[in-house]
Simulated assay, not measured.
Amino acid sequence: DKATLRDIEWIGSKTFLGSYYGSLQSKTPRAAFPWSESRDSGRPDTGRGGYPTCSEWWSKAETGLQARVVDQADPGLWTRLSAAMSMIGGNATDYREAVIRRLVSPESLTVSQGGHVYAGYGGNADFTLDNSVSRVAAIGGTALGSVAAFPAFDAMRQALPMVQAVLLMAVVVVLPLILAFSAYEIKTVITLTFVVFALNFLTFWWELARWLDSWLLTALYSSDTHSSFNMAGFQNSSDDLIMNFVMASMFLVLPAFWMGALSWAGVRIGGSLEAAFKTGTNDVQKAGGEAVNTAKSAVKL
């Protein structure tokens, strides 16, 4: 029945305590339970404790697992639970059991023993059936989309150097006009210098993206600690497909980031140099003007 199924979901199950835990013992000595001849006869006395039954191991006051888990909880938690029970009612035993269930859940034990590693931002941290269905559907959609997307990405990657050459030609053509229209401002000259440098440096970013696209999966899976085939939900298959999409987009994202960052730096440097030139010549300009103004005033007098 549902009540029994709910009860046997955790290690403190009343069904287990009443039917099984009394006859089962720990396989290794436990320091919190002294060795007992009547209980541990036939097992070695190593001096590191006895072999408690599972019922004793869980239920014993102070040294039992249940009591030790309760001691690990924040004392303020029980105060808040008491306040909640006084407001909305309920059984204190049920609240206590719910807290202990959560503390000894596999998810909590995993986190307490060194943290939980999440494969990505897909799904919830506490992965559910809905998340699993969504993940499988996403894998199918990504695989179907890759049939048309990957050939398009391949053609795009071949076209990028051609676009670079045409853009460099266009910059060389308009360079004299822009300098003339800007009256040869220092800021414009510096900015154009950065633009030309950035366009030529795009080759590096494309080579970097191609290297990552070629060797990233090999670096991830060509070791004894990883496998290209993962039985736990085809997680690697999903990551591989998405990674291929991401790496293909890097041929556009990395150059866009590079051009934006470098152009911004060029504008800042150009503006600073222009301000420095103006500041450095400002005193001379004022001094030269003062001499002319003084001569004009003398003539008028």
Rank of each mutant, 00 (worst) to 15 (best):
N91E: 05
V111D: 14
G120V: 15
Y95C: 10
F181M: 13
G140R: 11
R96L: 06
S132T: 13
A137W: 04
M156S: 00
W78C: 02
D130N: 11
G141H: 02
T193N: 12
T93N: 07
G64A: 01
T79Y: 06
Y184L: 06
A143Q: 10
G123C: 12
T63D: 00
W206I: 14
R80V: 09
G115P: 09
A138E: 09
A83L: 08
A143T: 08
T203Q: 06
L179W: 04
P176Q: 10
A149S: 00
A170S: 12
N124I: 04
V195P: 00
G122L: 12
R101M: 06
L109C: 09
A61K: 05
Q164I: 11
Y121D: 07
R80E: 05
H116E: 15
V174F: 12
I88V: 10
R80Y: 08
P75V: 09
A143D: 12
G114I: 07
S146A: 13
G115S: 02
F197S: 03
R157L: 09
K187S: 15
V69T: 14
A165T: 09
T63A: 00
G114L: 08
Q66K: 11
N131M: 08
L129C: 11
D74N: 10
A183W: 11
G141L: 14
F127C: 09
W78V: 10
G123T: 10
I139F: 04
Q72E: 08
D94M: 01
F181Y: 12
L103P: 01
Q113L: 15
Q66P: 00
A149L: 14
V70Q: 03
A98I: 07
S146T: 02
I100E: 05
P75H: 12
F150S: 01
S112W: 00
P176L: 12
W78Y: 15
S86G: 14
G76I: 00
A152P: 00
M169H: 08
A67Y: 05
Y95D: 05
L160M: 02
V147M: 03
A92W: 02
N124V: 06
R135V: 11
L167W: 11
F204N: 09
E207I: 07
V133P: 03
P161T: 07
A83Y: 14
I186D: 10
R157K: 10
G122P: 06
P75K: 01
Y184N: 15
V196R: 01
D130R: 13
G145K: 07
I178G: 03
R96T: 04
M156H: 07
S82F: 09
W78M: 13
R68I: 03
A138G: 01
L65R: 07
A198N: 11
